[in-house]
Amino acid sequence: MSDPSVSALVAEETATVDRVQGGGSLWSNAWRTLRRRPEVIVAALVALFFVVVAAFPRLFTSQDPQRCDISNSGIRPQWFSGPHPFGTDIAGCDLLASVVYGARPSLLLAFIVVGLSVLIGVTLGTLSGYYLGWVDTAISRAVEVFLVIPLLLAALLLLSLFRTVDTGSSVLGSILQPALVLTAFGWMGYTRYVRANVLETKNLDYVVAAKVLGASDLRIMVRHVLPNAIGTVTALIPTAIAGVISTEAVLAFLGIGVRPPAVSWGILISNGSERFTGDSQYLLLFPLGCLVLTVLALVVLGDGLRDALDPKLR
């Protein structure tokens, strides 16, 4: 054992172990883990691609989705051999342009709705589970009230009531109303999940230890309870994003979703599904394929992120 080369080897080995297991913050460790998973890298590239599509639609098509020529109606996909790679729909609008320009409202709506819902749900769920008492009673009853109102009925009522309100013609303006309504009926699930997890976590010894040290309620919630209670919520987020995009399609079908002239994947999917039985399957398959790819990428990303942030799985 006194052989210097052996001890040097041992020292080197422990140093590598330390580099792998510790060192740096939670996030830098997570980043290091994520980099080593190929499926996460692929998913990140796919997600990044759609974000670029949403941000810079002009890079991907020269056509204007609003300029439809009825004489070009129903052209099948031409790929690289013509001006309409994905073909055109029944009104002669270029499908590639529609899909590309539809990405922004769809993704923006989905991220706003899910982001706000998670924020509201996590905040209320944590407060409710941590303090219990009247706070819990008020929040839990509110959750129940919102759960029993059918989403479509409420959306129909609210969106048709405020249909005349002008929110501007920007992308944000065209999705503002559906975003608010979908958020108002989307936060309850997260609240319940987080509340249940907080109830379980808050009586663990390390939370008691933080209390004994004199930590404030806010510190205990943010540093000790939430990181250990939020796991199930991160698994819900990717599917929730898909859910919002398809719900938006339903709203669009009822004429109360994203306001025209803006197009969205939801509108394209709902239009395309009407013609699926003919020989125009491509009208459904292209927007649906984009949606599925986006959701799949988010699922893999979310999964990888959750594993990377859990020190035990490293």
Partner: peptide, 24 residues
């Protein structure tokens, strides 16, 4: 505490667990 497995926050590095007292 009695149970050393539930007494430490699994998502905090050991140094941070011990040093949290100084933040408080």
């Amino acid at each position: 505490f009695q149970d050393p497995y539930t007494a430490l926050n699994p998502r905090m590095p050991a140094g941070e667990i011990v040093g949290e007292a100084y933040a408080i």
